[in-house]
Amino acid sequence: MTAARVRILGFGMGPQHVTPEVAAALGECDYAIAVQKGDEDALLEARRAVCEAYGVELVVVRDPERDRSPGLDRSAYEGAVADWYAARLAAYRAVLDGRGGTCAFLVWGDPSLYDGTIRIVRELDVPFDVLPGVSAPQVLAARHRIVLHEVGQPVHVTTARRLRADVAARQRNLVVMLTAGVDLEGFEDWTIWWGANLGGVGERLVSGRVGDVVGVIEDARAAAKAEAGWVMDLFLLRGPEA
C-alpha cells in the first residue's frame, strides 16, 4: 500500500463547474472523502454527483457529534468544538491510514474562500496540493452581469456576522457570505445583488434598491429552500454615492 497523498479540489457548485484541471486530477485519485452531516445532506449529494461523473469512489465519513447543549459558556463551547474537530481529524486519518493512495477532498466553491479544508489537511501531515474551483462570488457576478467592484475601487469580502462592523469601518462595497437570512435594516438606500443556490436546484436572483426588494429576497430565499431542501445565499451590497 502506498502512503496517502491528498488533492484538495475546488468543484464549484456541481459537475457543471468542474474545470478541466480538476477533472484531470480526479482521474488520478483512487477515492474521495466526504463528511455526511445528517441523514439528508445536500452538499454530500453534490460531491457524490461529481464523483459519479468522473468515476471516483466516494468514502463517506459520518460527522462526529458535537455538544450543542444550550447554555454552554465560552470555555465549554470552545472545548466542544475542539473535541469535535479532533474527532473529525481522527476519522479522516483512519481512512487515509487504512487505504493509502491518492485521496480527493472536494471543496464547495473554491478552497481559498471561507473553507477550512486546507487547515484540516495540514494537520493530517500528508503531502497535498490544491486546485482552484469556481467560487460563489464569481457565479453571483456572472448571473447578474456585473463587476464586483466599481472602476478603480476595492471589493471587501466578508461574512453576514461581520457586515455591520465592516460598514462601520467605512466599507461601502461588500460581498457578504455565510448568511443565515438577510438582516438589512438600515441599508434601505443601498443597492443589492443577491443570489441563492447558485448553479444548483432552487437558484434565485434578486437585485435593486434594498428598501424596494428586501421582501422579494425573503420570499425568494424561502422558495429556494422549499425547492431544494436547503439554501445557501450571498450578496453584493453597495452603498449610495456620497
Rank of each mutant, 00 (worst) to 15 (best):
A87C: 06
Q171P: 05
G239Q: 05
I146W: 05
W230H: 10
G14R: 05
A223N: 06
F187L: 06
A32C: 03
Q171E: 15
A160P: 07
A223E: 11
L236C: 00
F187G: 02
V147Y: 04
G12S: 02
Y85G: 05
Q16H: 08
L205N: 03
G211P: 00
L237H: 04
V139Y: 04
F187H: 08
V214T: 13
C51T: 06
D39V: 12
A82F: 00
G239E: 11
P154E: 09
L198H: 07
W190I: 05
D129V: 04
D41H: 03
A4R: 09
R7N: 10
A80D: 05
D110C: 09
W190E: 06
V151K: 15
V157S: 12
A136E: 02
P70M: 04
A168P: 05
G14K: 03
R122P: 04
W108D: 13
G38V: 08
C29D: 05
R238V: 12
T158L: 06
E150T: 13
A94P: 13
G239F: 09
R47I: 02
V126D: 03
G195T: 08
G100L: 12
A94L: 03
L205S: 06
W194K: 12
A4W: 07
M1S: 11
D125Q: 14
G14D: 00
G116F: 09
